[in-house]
Amino acid sequence: MTSVPMIAAHELSKVFPLERGLWSALSRKLSGRPPRRVQAVDRVSFEVAPGETVGIVGESGCGKSTLAKMLAGLSGTNGGELLLRGRPLAEVMSDPRQALKVQMIFQDPQSSLNARMKVVDIVGEAPVVHGLIPRAEKEARVRAMLERVGLGPEALHRYPHQFSGGQRQRIGIARALAVEPELLICDESVAALDVSVQAQIINLLMELRRDLGLTMLFISHDLSVIRHICDRVIVMYLGRAVEIAPTDALFADPRHPYTRMLLAGMPRISTERRAFLEVAGEIPSPLAPPAGCHFHPRCQFRTEECLAQRPPLDPVDARRSAACLRWREIG
């Protein structure tokens, strides 16, 4: 990582208040209890180099999507620092041309396309509005974008409901590409698709990454997808990053017990027998996360210390780190 990182997040946090309005504020004042809130993202730090593909993996509710929305500038941050190409996010977002360099691909191809607009408008609206192309070139641009994502020009004047899920996801990708992004944030972008279609979309994304030199942040709960596409992986649990490692190292030698649990639960065709690590209990409520290490109630390696102290994200070696007090003993 010699050049300026595409994303540099430092202690990034996001808190959602659960109580709003005058009445609850008053009752809180009177009773003196602290406001109830959810720490969706809790002091997460990481860097993404230009051209790199980083996966974010974790169970639902771990803050992956919130993190994605913060990175895309769709949701504000509550503390921490977020730099895009070395400039603060707020500064980047205030300049529309710069802000367009970050685009998202959404999970649900049904709701991510406006049902009442034709494909030519869905894909072509933003480039025209922002003056990237003159209005007269709109159709040509959209046709080129559709070709890029493997759709024919007959798609131009159709509505989203006339396409299959995979085709709709391709339209979503074309919409993002039309404004010439540098960073693509894929939020569970293949989770809603059939397995065969998933593979096509993943191949398309890899092809685009190679051809256009895109930096990608790939959010998924599906480890096999992550393993296939990512250079590095960030494992999240209840709003915290628990392990950051290159993909190969992570899958070969996980250092955090949660990562081990995830990997053990991953089905493999090669092994005859699927051995699960014993998992104690359910994922805790993010409303009342456990003290100390959030993972301790489910962890087989826990000590007294784990209950009291938040484990720091310790560097394991030059390229990986894990947030576990006993990472040296694990793996």
Binding site: A72, L74, L100, S111, S112, G172
Partner: peptide
Amino acid sequence: RSDYVDAARGLRLSAVR
């Protein structure tokens, strides 16, 4: 709450639009 609104915001279209 639909993703297409987030997509439009991500494309930096104006609130009026």
